[in-house]
């Protein structure tokens, strides 16, 4: 029984992290129609940002907030150089461009910072709380809390604010949105920066438990894609739900089937969802646009 609860707790804790990264990905997809394969690399940037700020004896929470800004700034530059010129071209080209960006960022950071993992330690990182034989490290609790807050904030932003209305309009139909005076290009810019900056925070949050190194983002990108597809692309509550579902599938398949086949099982689940309900678990059915 303890094991069962521990598995659920593990899955939920990881799921919160996946949800946070997927949130940025799904926002960007919704507005720009871009499958951003460089998403995980912004987590890496955020993590490196946190590491270097903490080397300068900055408070951990402050460092995380600044890593949000760092990731956003780098996202701004990348968007201008690699994505903005392609806004009118095929989505496939944008995707390829993001692959190029990913190769570039990983290898540049390896060149600049060496491939050695770097350790970020804060007051939470070593401790864990315990209840009835179930353990959860304090850092993971922090991740869950921050992730839920950010998900909630993003949801509020999209549903209630003026910016959110523009984003939703731009993602539903960019042409009509432009006709109504919504600056879709600027919205795309802001969404991209906000999306990657969220992922930057995720990177800063994971730094104490996963260490910081150049290739840390790649597996996160893949997981985030699974989450986004499960939840429905461009769908915020879907991404949050999807995050927890993927986390749970992962921990249950590892716990009760096989740790070696963990990834195979996660992707098979994705496959099944795509076949049965391609628009995602939470989406309402939409017909094809002619």
């Amino acid at each position: 029984m303890t094991e069962f609860i521990q598995i659920i707790v593990n899955g939920m804790a990881n799921g919160a992290l996946y949800a946070l990264i997927a949130l940025g990905l799904t926002l960007i997809y919704g507005v720009m129609n871009l499958s951003n394969f460089a998403q995980g690399e912004f987590a890496m940037i955020g993590a490196f940002g946190t590491y270097f700020l903490m080397q300068m004896h900055m408070n951990y929470m402050l460092a995380i907030i600044l890593s949000f800004i760092i990731a956003g700034l780098i996202g701004f530059v990348i968007h201008i150089l690699a994505f903005h010129p392609l806004r009118k071209s095929e989505p496939l080209n944008m995707m390829l461009s993001s692959l190029g960006v990913s190769v570039f960022l990983v290898n540049l950071s390896q060149y600049l910072f060496s491939p050695n993992p770097k350790v970020v330690s804060n007051s939470f990182s070593e401790k864990s709380i315990q209840a009835f034989g179930v353990f959860l490290s304090e850092q993971r609790i922090l991740i869950v809390i921050v992730s839920l807050i950010l998900c909630g904030f993003t949801y509020w932003l999209l549903e209630r604010s003026k910016f959110g209305r523009s984003v939703r309009a731009a993602s539903l139909d960019p042409d009509t949105a432009t006709l109504y005076g919504i600056p879709t290009n600027r919205i795309a810019f802001l969404t991209f920066i906000f999306g990657v900056a969220l992922t930057g925070i995720a990177g800063g949050l994971t730094a104490p438990i996963y260490n910081v190194y150049p290739t840390m983002g790649i597996s996160l990108t893949l997981k985030a894609f699974v989450v986004v597809v499960l939840g429905g692309m461009g769908n915020i509550p879907g991404a949050i739900m999807g995050g927890f579902i993927v986390g749970l599938i992962e921990s249950f398949s590892a716990g009760y089937i096989s740790t070696a086949f963990q990834d195979v099982i996660v992707f098979s689940a994705l496959f099944l969802v795509l076949i049965i309900k391609p628009e995602g678990i939470l989406s309402k059915v939409q017909g094809e646009k002619v």
């Binding site: 190029g100 570039f104 960022l105």
Partner: peptide
Amino acid sequence: YGVILVAVIV
């Protein structure tokens, strides 16, 4: 390599 990839696509 990454830079060239992006440049060609762009």
